[in-house]
C-alpha cells in the first residue's frame, strides 16, 4: 500500500498570532512555524503502517513557499520516504491558495503517483477551512472518512479499511474501499519527535520541487476583504467567595 500524506506549514499552535497593521493578513514574519498538528497525526499513522509492514511507501507533499522544505525535512525525519514541494509565491493561509486549489493540485499528483491511501489532517489551524480532504476525495471519486480516530487495515473482503470517526454524539464506524482519502483528528495517535540520527538521514532523502503555476492557476473566487480582531468580551470581576458567586449568578446575571 502506497500512502500520500499532504502536510501544511502553519504558524506553530503555541504562538499567539497577530493581525498586521493593515488588517489584511496575519503577521507571519519571524514567527515559529510547524507542521499543521493534525497533519503530524496523519504522517505518524502512515509511518506506523509502514513500520508494521502494511504500507510500502510514504510520500509527503506540501504546497507552500521554499521555506516549507523545513517541514518536509521534518516529515522525512519522522519516517516519510520522499517528499514533494509544490512551490507557490501566493499565501496559503488566507486570501491566496485555498482548499479547492490545493485539492485540484493534489488530484493531479494522485493521478501521477497512484497512492492507495491519502492521509491528511482534518483541518488547517490557520484557515480553519476543513475542506481539502473531502474535496480531493470528490474530485478523485474516492470514499472519504473525516475526523478519523482509528484506522484498521482489513485483510479480506472487498473493503480494505475500517475507520472510526468522531461525530456529534458518539463514534461511527465505517468500512471503505481503497483507494480512499482519510482525514484525521488528534485522538488517532501521538506523533513522534524526530531523533537526531533520523534528522541527519532525512537530509539525503529525495525532495522533488514542482511549480504551482505549472499545475494550476489559482482558481478560487474568494476575495479576502479584511482580517480583524474578534470583539472583546466585557471585562470581568474577581469574586471573594462562593456565596458571592451564587448571588451574582442568581441576581445579577440571572442564569441560575
Amino acid at each position: 500500500m502506497k500512502i500520500l500524506v499532504p502536510i501544511k506549514r502553519v504558524i506553530d499552535h503555541t504562538v499567539k498570532v497577530r493581525i498586521n497593521s493593515e488588517n489584511s493578513a496575519i503577521d507571519t514574519n519571524n514567527v515559529k512555524m510547524a507542521i499543521n498538528p493534525f497533519d503530524a497525526n496523519a504522517l505518524e499513522e502512515a509511518v506506523r503502517l509502514k513500520e508494521s509492514g502494511k504500507a510500502s511507501e510514504v510520500i509527503t507533499i506540501t504546497i507552500g513557499t521554499e521555506k516549507a522544505q523545513e517541514q518536509l525535512r521534518t516529515a522525512l525525519a519522522m519516517g516519510a520516504d520522499r517528499a514533494i514541494l509544490i512551490k507557490s509565491a501566493l499565501p496559503v493561509d488566507l486570501g491566496g491558495i485555498q482548499s479547492l486549489d490545493v485539492a485540484k493540485t493534489f488530484y493531479r499528483i494522485a493521478n501521477r503517483e497512484n497512492p492507495d491511501l491519502i492521509l491528511m489532517g482534518k483541518q488547517s489551524i490557520d484557515s480553519d477551512a476543513g475542506q481539502t480532504p473531502q474535496m480531493l476525495a470528490a474530485l478523485l471519486g474516492w470514499p472519504q472518512s473525516t475526523y478519523t480516530s482509528s484506522i484498521t487495515i482489513l485483510e479480506d473482503g472487498d473493503e480494505q479499511l475500517e475507520v472510526a470517526r468522531e461525530v456529534d454524539g458518539g463514534v461511527e464506524t465505517l468500512r471503505l474501499k481503497i483507494p480512499a482519502v482519510i482525514s484525521v483528528d488528534l485522538q488517532l495517535n501521538k506523533p513522534r519527535y524526530a531523533r537526531l540520527p533520523d534528522i541527519m538521514k532525512a537530509k539525503n532523502k529525495p525532495l522533488e520541487m514542482l511549480e504551482f503555476v505549472d499545475l494550476l492557476q489559482g482558481s478560487s473566487h474568494i476575495k479576502l476583504l479584511k482580517v480583524s480582531e474578534p470583539p472583546p468580551r466585557a471585562p470581568g470581576v474577581t469574586l471573594p467567595d462562593v456565596d458571592t458567586l451564587i448571588d451574582k449568578l442568581r441576581h445579577e446575571a440571572k442564569v441560575i
Binding site: 496575519i26 488566507l94 486570501g95 489551524i125 484557515s127 476583504l225 480582531e229 474578534p230
Partner: peptide, 13 residues
C-alpha cells in the same frame, strides 16, 4: 480563522 484568534471578512464571486 486561526483558531478563533481572528475574523476574516470574505467576498465570494
Amino acid at each position: 480563522v486561526y483558531t478563533g484568534n481572528a475574523l476574516a471578512t470574505v467576498q465570494s464571486e
